[in-house]
């Protein structure tokens, strides 16, 4: 397992920051969380590919379905999740500086933006249901409700994780050398954001 964590025979080349020295290459968070993230990404990849294939078979149904969605709510949700992810990233940065209370406050702001996402999503579902559209309406809405509900459940799980991380951070439960749990929670939250930035164009934009 250690080989997986430390596997890096050469430097990482990037345009965005100086090349980190080999000794500093470290996987943030627990290895188990990264395997879990890979498993989640794989499941969603299958759903996204299934959606794209279904759209090719029933293009008329999918085109009509997309016009019945509220595109602006999808945009609001994308902005909210990206902003939430940003606050989690700077909360982790604050935690690296051992500023537990500031970090916990930033996580609360992150959860506020996540609540915007949840509120808009629920509003969107209710609007569709009031129009008589549900999961059995057609293939498009079956996949739409299935994929977005599945993603919403991940958002809710992420919020529960961030809740416990924030409490522990506020109590001073993390420090520079004991931050793995915080990093794992943050990585999970960024995965939720990553999934949405693929889901949004696929279901709402294209």
């Amino acid at each position: 397992m250690n080989n997986l964590i430390n596997a890096s025979p050469e430097h990482i080349i990037s345009n965005h920051s100086p090349v980190p020295p080999l000794a500093s290459l470290r996987l943030p968070g627990d290895l188990a969380m990264w395997f879990f993230i890979l498993a989640e990404l794989t499941v969603f990849a299958i759903l996204f590919i299934g959606f794209a294939i279904a759209e090719q078979h029933q293009s008329d149904v999918f085109s009509l379905g997309k016009t019945q969605l509220h595109q602006m709510s999808g945009l609001i949700n994308t902005l909210a999740l990206i902003t939430s992810s940003y606050f989690v990233a700077i909360a982790l940065r604050a935690m690296h500086l051992e500023q537990g209370k500031k970090s916990a406050s930033l996580l609360v702001v992150a959860k506020f933006f996540a609540c915007i996402y949840i509120g808009v999503k629920v509003w969107e579902y209710l609007t569709l249901l009031n129009q008589g559209i549900d999961i059995e309406t057609n293939t498009f809405f079956t996949l739409y409700f299935m994929i977005t509900c599945f993603h919403l459940m991940h958002v809710l799980l992420g919020m529960v994780i961030l809740f416990f991380v924030a409490i522990k951070a506020a109590k001073g439960g993390y420090d520079k050398n004991n931050i793995s749990g915080f990093e794992s929670g943050a990585s999970y939250w960024h995965m939720v954001d990553l999934l949405w930035i693929i889901l949004f164009p696929l279901i709402y934009v294209i």
Binding site: I5, R26, I198
Partner: peptide, 24 residues
């Protein structure tokens, strides 16, 4: 654009730019 956004989330938010090459 999905790729550009994903790359930024992976490298900067997830901090994998500083992680072992395999995971990045």
């Amino acid at each position: 654009i999905v790729f550009l956004k994903g790359q930024k989330i992976v490298d900067i938010f997830m901090e994998l730019i500083e992680a072992p090459k395999l995971w990045r």
